[in-house]
Design a protein around this nucleic acid. Structure first.
Length: 419
RNA sequence: GUGAGUGUAGCUCAGGUGGUUAGAGCACCAGAUUGUGGCUCUGGGGGCCGUGGGUUCAAGUCCCAUCACUCACCCCA
């Protein structure tokens, strides 16, 4: 138990970390081009921030939050998603007072208490972006485009973008009542979850996978036919901008996201070949969220992408992220005085920007050569008592397999010229 | 929260119906080569057989519980 990471968490080991930082770099570069700026918010927040913004009736708030009391009896929660914190920071630092829109991106761990499964962890990692202060459908398109460009840069282009509109406070209540009216008579045919959804969030019944519920919902008209004129226009505009940007999409009228704050645009990016947890990312517009959090009415739109899922998807299509492995110099020494001189030498190399390593266990030359091979050394410097006396050092090329003796004093310059 | 499957060496896995000192391949270390990597050969170190309890003369093997992992439901990233 002591030497075991908690359930649903895992270590990202050397060898994997390179892929993570490569993805991070892709996203950073992309965000720079789109003019989104990085923000880092705390990993925990006041519980209320999430219960109010994500929604009391959601699964996330109802059963998946890591909530605890600190020593001052404050109720805190490990963040289950990134948008709420970003909104909080937007308000706290009065970013609304600057030129709008405010465009932010983030990267970091999120926490949800859930049963672990393929592609599902209790601590998982998301990268995401949020744009505040503009209700323009152009920025919905920009956000979706940024997300799709990220997948593209990661080498994932077989993904499907699903999009829908979930309406706004003007038209959604009417639709909600419509659903209730139609389903009233079939209420007892619904699964237990949907029976309570009937009260709390009837829209989510449409998204239920249970066969019985699906049948019943066939008679419910699509939300897209019940949107108010503003929402219809907004949705059409977003779709047209996607076409303009040559982003292919699939309208999914049943797409309802699990967070309450979405208005108008809702979208999800799925990899159909991935198994059960096939959503790589999602997002949408949340024009009421800033107000819910105590600010003045400010529109917003954003997305989040799960890094574990992206990596899984890459693995699935057996493509690897390219990253350059740093080659280094290995200094092999024989005897205590050569070893000491070797320590001096690796340090000198390192301080001159050359990656260098040596053996610290007084091992045989053979063992040191083997180690040099393993760390991927392109060149090995061999320094024994003989060389030390002559003021020389052996420079061996590991790929060619040949070697020559050079002046010890000149070795730094020789290696520098080589690079 | 519900269901199913799996826990043996660092890794991948063998260990018919219970029966002596629990094995292999890979990896690791060393030697063959007293100062030279990859290939080969030889040898070596490594195991609370997930944990706890039970049945039995005897449990890695059977039973129960528990924990963990995996997959699915649910939900989502």
């Amino acid at each position: 138990m002591l030497a075991k990471a908690p359930r649903g968490t895992r270590d990202i080991l050397p060898g994997e970390v390179e892929e993570w930082s490569t993805l991070e770099t892709f996203f950073r570069n992309l965000c720079k081009n789109y003019n989104y700026r990085e923000i880092r918010t705390p990993i925990f927040e006041h519980t209320e921030l999430f219960s109010r913004s994500v929604g009391e009736d959601t699964d996330i708030v109802g059963k998946e939050m890591y909530t605890f009391l600190d020593k001052g009896k404050r109720s805190l929660t490990l963040r289950p998603e990134g948008t709420a914190s970003t909104v909080r920071a937007f308000l706290e630092h009065k970013m609304y007072a600057q030129a709008q829109p405010t465009k932010l991106f983030y990267f970091g761990p999120m926490f949800r208490y859930d049963r672990p499964q393929a592609g599902r962890y209790r601590q998982f990692h998301q990268l995401g972006a949020e744009a505040f202060g503009s209700a323009s459908p152009e920025i919905d398109a920009e956000i979706i485009c940024l997300a799709m460009d990220f997948f593209q840069s990661a080498g994932l282009n077989q993904l499907s973008l699903e999009i829908n509109s979930v309406g706004c406070p003007q038209c959604r209540p009417g639709y909600r009542e419509e659903i209730r009216k139609i389903l009233e008579k079939n209420r007892r045919d619904l699964c237990p979850d949907c029976q309570s959804r009937f009260e709390t969030n009837p829209l989510r019944i449409l998204d239920c996978k249970i066969e019985g519920c699906r049948e019943v919902t066939l008679q419910v008209p699509e939300i897209l036919d019940h949107l108010c004129s503003y929402c219809v226009q907004h949705f059409e505009d977003v779709i047209n901008f996607l076409k303009l940007l040559e982003i292919s999409y699939q309208v999914n009228p049943k797409l309802v996201r699990g967070l309450d704050y979405y208005t108008n645009t809702a979208f999800e990016i799925v990899d159909t070949g991935l198994g059960s947890q096939n959503s790589l990312g999602g997002g949408g517009r949340y024009d009421g969220l800033v107000e819910t959090c105590g600010g003045s009415a400010t529109p917003g739109v954003g997305f989040a992408i799960g890094l574990e899922r992206v990596l899984l998807s890459l693995e699935q299509q057996s493509s690897q992220l390219e990253y350059t492995e740093e080659s280094r110099i290995f200094v092999a020494t024989l005897g205590p005085s050569a070893s000491a001189r070797g320590l001096q030498l690796v340090t000198e190399l390192r301080r001159n920007g050359i990656a260098a390593e040596k053996d610290y266990q007084d091992r045989s030359l053979k063992a040191q050569m083997k180690q040099a091979d393993r760390v991927g050394a392109a060149k090995v410097l061999i320094l024994g008592e003989e060389e030390l006396e002559k003021g020389k050092i052996v420079l061996r090329d590991m790929e060619k397999g040949d070697q020559r003796e050079v002046e010890l004093e000149e070795i730094l310059q020789i290696l520098k010229n080589d690079l």
